[in-house]
Design a protein around this nucleic acid. Sequence first.
DNA 1: CGATTTTTTGAATCATATCAACGTACGTGG
DNA 2: CCACGTACGTTGATATGATTCAAAAAATCG
Lengths: 193, 193
Amino acid sequence: MFEKFLEQFNKKVPLTAAESTQLQEHLTVKKVRKKQYLLQEGEVCKNLAFVEKGLLRAYSIDDTGREHIIQFALEGWVISDLYSFLTGEPATYNIEAIEDTEVVLISQSAHATLLLQIPKYETFTRLNITGAYLAMQKRLTSTISATLEDRYEAFIALYPHIAERVPQHMIAAYLGLTPETLSRVRKRISLHK
Amino acid sequence: MFEKFLEQFNKKVPLTAAESTQLQEHLTVKKVRKKQYLLQEGEVCKNLAFVEKGLLRAYSIDDTGREHIIQFALEGWVISDLYSFLTGEPATYNIEAIEDTEVVLISQSAHATLLLQIPKYETFTRLNITGAYLAMQKRLTSTISATLEDRYEAFIALYPHIAERVPQHMIAAYLGLTPETLSRVRKRISLHK
DNA sequence: CGATTTTTTGAATCATATCAACGTACGTGG
DNA sequence: CCACGTACGTTGATATGATTCAAAAAATCG
């Protein structure tokens, strides 16, 4: 059921058997088929989703109709519209399965309860959000200061397992450029070596 | 000494008098004059800095010599090179005072001790990093999907008190564009209303 | 296999960067 | 307190690079 989740948790913050049992009482699992939504813009994000298996993306659509991918999530990662989850405001992101996927869900109330009842859950949460923050800071720095070539190559180097599993136009949507431009960037790179 | 820091802390997580005393034993204060560095690229970031008074910026310099501002920090905000602080790796950012500034410092060892000894400190940390994450996510989304006009106006709307206190070219460095372009963006905006 | 999606390519257009010059404001020492 | 020097902001001309639109080629899926 929650193998990967518990494995990740224990890797970050080792749990006793009792804590592990208590924790599991607040978890549920869900399967999401390829191209199905886990969350749609406008709904409230009711859960944090930990990916046991599969691959998802969180994206928004701007007024010109273009998609912008804010996050991919592979096995072992957490995905949500965190702002919506924490505030109860309508979500601004869509979360869609790119492959058939299995997630562990932590509801808003489960999250609140776990934070109060299991100190290690708060530590786990803190470590997760810290990691996410650092990764996003790196991405932001790269977005405002690096060349397209460097940004693409950095993405491939950092997330080779995502790159092999998503279509190229989604990488473009993640990097913030058009599919045509990404195609040309790749060509320039291949010519240069 | 630590008025703003304690005020912010209590606002997020109310402390008992005993906790407050214990916390303060791990804090120190420091004054940084305008244009002085709190941290320079290459050093290890030894402290989290909470701003009691003044204004700082964290920025990096790319290979073409351009500055990119990753963060401003006003009174009540925390600034650091978090990656360096947490890992002990050399910092990739410079932190410089834009005005004469007073900060409360939390050293690496103080941070580690406080996390273990005062559960509310972990909560405070978690809330801070969560807020920083959400703010950065908004910024990233805006960077990859909005027009320059919208990005500039969103910045002004969100941080009016920063905009009043920093030169325009630093806002350009924060938004990731040249000072000339920002000047033209402002002109386009003023013509349009 | 046929249908659809994805990627590539080309040409024209649009937006931002660059380089250079000028005007203005600021604060610092005389 | 004034004058000079340095920072800062604006403007113009040009160059660069990404987007757009259209179409074709390639890959994938049922």
